[in-house]
Design a protein around this nucleic acid. Structure first.
Lengths: 107, 107
DNA sequence: CTGTATCCGATCTGATACTG
DNA sequence: CAGTATCAGATCGGATACAG
């Protein structure tokens, strides 16, 4: 769950908490241009288990960066997308990506 | 240690790895304006154990964002400071802090 | 003062099987 | 299709004692 039990020492700490989780960055990345269905995300994030995918999506949703929309019919169909906050978050991460390219070299 | 065993999927992922650790953000914050001695950091980061402080400092050092300088005499004396990469990293985190203030409200 | 060495519990992640 | 349930393994962080 998020906010996780841990207290925050500063606002940056709180933001990091939103991103803490092995796959969250990748999930946000896959949602950056369009909504994705659960099954799509499972394919786009190779190696993640269903349990963990659901869990990380729930946390991102609880933190207000992802929204979940369920269109149900004969076949269940659920779409996940970035909220405004989520979109702004991906933008706020750009300098960090640049820093990484400059100083970490390795990818 | 860092880079930790985990493979990275993108450069942002690599940057997040540098910051992953319960106290690293706080340690970087305390080093942002001046070098600090081990004992100072222990006091400035309340609640951290010596073991974990050393560990996180070693990882930050391995990732090239913190440098350690040992001036030894009768009393051991060690100073930690930000490298150029570390300083740039703190700057790259500013938009994330702003995002947090705008969208998370809580601190 | 600046660390090491242990041990332990909490948390996180993964594999697998199953359900509406 | 979109999840839940369960169990196990790995990793992380914390407490404490001790050392150079």
């Amino acid at each position: 769950m998020s906010p996780r039990a841990r207290p925050h020492f500063c606002s940056l700490d709180a933001a990091m908490d939103v991103l803490s989780g092995k796959w969250k960055i990748l999930i946000l990345w896959e949602l950056r241009e369009q909504p994705r269905r659960f099954g799509e995300l499972r394919r786009l994030v190779p190696g993640i288990s269903e349990k963990v995918l659901v869990q990380q999506l729930r946390e991102l949703e609880a933190d207000g960066v992802v929204s979940r929309e369920s269109h149900d019919g004969a076949q269940p169909r659920v779409e996940y997308s970035l909220t405004q906050a989520g979109l702004e978050l991906t933008k706020a991460l750009q300098p960090l990506t640049d820093w990484s390219l400059r100083y970490l070299v390795r990818v």
